[in-house]
């Protein structure tokens, strides 16, 4: 059984990739194992520094899904405005889109006949 996948212009061998992954994981582990010896878990050393303020509860500091990629969505506000406007959830629009696309395809096919 061959493990090499040929695409006509390149190849992909997952086992070779796995071997490289193991190799780099080993290097990573070596770097990790030589880490900072002064680190002490479960002490004040690992607490966040908040300028003397009380640390908020875990639920309050969690980054919510809605906040992730806020900048990306904000930058593409115009694009998303159009995109959300066409996703109306209205059944009549679903069918109108079908009729519209169908008409274009029919025009292209019958027009070319």
């Amino acid at each position: 059984m061959s493990f090499t996948l040929l695409s006509g212009s390149g190849f992909w061998n997952p086992l070779l990739w796995l071997a490289l992954l193991v190799f780099f994981a080993l290097i990573g582990y070596i770097i990790y194992s030589r880490g900072n010896p002064s680190y002490k878990p479960n002490t004040d050393q690992v607490m966040p520094f908040l300028s003397g303020n009380v640390e908020p509860s875990k639920e309050k500091v969690q980054v919510k899904a809605g906040d992730i990629y806020w900048g990306f969505v904000e930058a593409l506000k115009g694009y998303y405005k159009v995109l959300t406007a066409i996703h109306t959830g209205d059944m009549r629009d679903y069918i109108l889109w079908y009729l519209g696309v169908g008409s274009i395809i029919l025009f292209l096919l019958v027009g070319g006949a």
Binding site: Y94, W97, V101, V110
Partner: peptide, 26 residues
């Protein structure tokens, strides 16, 4: 002939909608 092409267009669009192709994916 045009009738065959109409049949192709109808089949193509209908199956494209049923497989969730944009813009018939809603």
């Amino acid at each position: 002939n045009p009738l065959d092409m109409i049949a192709l267009g109808l089949l193509f669009t209908s199956f494209a909608m049923k497989c969730g192709s944009v813009p018939m994916h809603y």
